[in-house]
Design a protein around this nucleic acid. Structure first.
Lengths: 242, 242
DNA sequence: CGTATGGTTGATCTCACTCAAGGGTTGTGG
DNA sequence: CCACAACCCTTGAGTGAGATCAACCATACG
């Protein structure tokens, strides 16, 4: 089953050309697959890791917990995202990764990734690029949470998620499936659940977004992007020799 | 003058062993030096970059601007920080970098960094590691801004900055120089200047922190770290084969 | 000196939190 | 097949944190 690598290759090929040999090198990586239940902790906080996890199917979030009991989500992973690739270098990560819905994930041993990086400088840079894009998203989130008002922030999150899912081939025609609870979105945006609910209703009432169950529709993407000050540059979705 | 490379080597050697040859390879990188005035924009927003910038001396911040005129700072760079190393892969960055005080920075052409990465897999990973640490800081900032109350957030920022400056050899005995205005800290924490001022006064009044001019003193680091829920793990300041 | 910049203070108002309860849907067991 | 529990969404009311507005002070600088 080669589908394991499709989301990843899709993410890479969006950003640079890969030779047939490079594609083959990636495809030859050994892996173990795992199905995770909704709510399951995929990667525990503070663990010492010997493999890195790639999401094939489903949504996961990266969260930190404070002593006070508060929780902040600082990352959202869609299929094709190399959830904890940084662990290849860090060995230890200080947040945990949780499945939002039933997920299919695969783990690649660090040993094999390491060997790949020893012989393939260009692929190394492409993996590096993935972690850099992840960092760019985090920086954009800082801006959202710090200076965008909740409606703008939510609009931005929707634009970003749509764009990322579109790359993964999971969103089109201004619609996508977003299996997340309002409590989780509140933990993304740093708001209370009650206020989160009211913010969503605000976007609904203006007709900008239709959100029923897990189905999100954007009436006019351009308009929403303008409202949110969303500029996809930071996602680096263009081909370029890297 | 080899001091150009000291802050960088310090940052790297803190996290892994480097061979004499590797150190020599770094030292042999060609560069151009520049002095930046306080408030000067070092790297313009959206520019196409052919070199990456390392801070030798002074403080810089990375900021985003919204249409509304609001500004959010999403990164703080201390000496030894490779400010826009991600640009090596991204080519284009969507935020700008500004000097907080008079800074000494050096630029390394991407061509040379690229060549270095082609032949040195381990050094590549070390540079990669720097960008990953930068990302880890951004994630921690999301948590701070989203879920820490202003006093905790400020305490966390102080602990983080002290720890990072300590690595750079610029802080010890619980004291450091922090040439930043309250308006800038407000843009880091996503607060208004007035409230920022009151938050600082709060930390001062409890005696946890002395802050006069640009000199910041921490009365009891452990106590402040506890208050802020600060755990330096995310800074990855230990030696490990990467 | 006058001016600019940054820090400080007070008053007012609004946004967002908390608390508390009700409603809808799904799944499960009697 | 219905009752109940669990989970999530929704709504209302009261409170408080943080924004905004508007001054005033301190220091550095030309």
């Amino acid at each position: 089953m080669s589908e394991v690598f499709e989301p990843l290759l899709r993410a890479l090929l969006q950003r640079d050309h890969l030779s047939a040999d490079e594609v083959a090198q990636i495809r030859s990586l050994p892996f173990r697959k795992r199905i995770c239940e909704r709510g399951e902790q995929i990667i525990p906080d503070g663990a010492r890791l010997r493999e890195s996890c790639l999401v094939i199917n489903g949504f996961t979030v990266r969260a930190s917990h404070l002593r006070s009991g508060k929780r902040q989500i600082n990352g959202l992973h869609v299929p094709g995202d190399f959830v904890d690739l940084p662990a290849l270098l860090l060995k230890k990560i200080s947040h945990n990764v949780v499945a939002l819905n039933e997920c299919e994930v695969v783990f690649f041993p660090h040993r094999d990734l390491r060997e790949l990086c020893e012989r393939e400088p260009h692929l190394t840079r492409m993996l590096w690029l993935l972690t850099v894009c992840d960092g760019a998203i985090a920086k954009e989130w800082i801006t959202s949470i710090g200076r965008r008002v909740p409606e703008e922030h939510l609009a931005h999150l929707i634009c970003e998620t749509y764009t990322r899912l579109n790359v993964a081939g999971l969103a089109r025609d201004n619609r996508f499936d977003f299996p997340i609870t309002q409590a989780d979105i509140a933990d993304i945006m740093g708001l209370s659940v009650v206020h989160m609910n009211r913010t969503i209703q605000e976007l609904r009432s203006t007709g900008e977004v239709t959100w029923k169950g897990t189905s999100v529709s954007i009436l006019d993407f351009e308009a929403l992007a303008t409202r949110a000050d969303f500029d996809a540059t930071y996602l680096n979705l263009w081909k370029e020799p890297r």
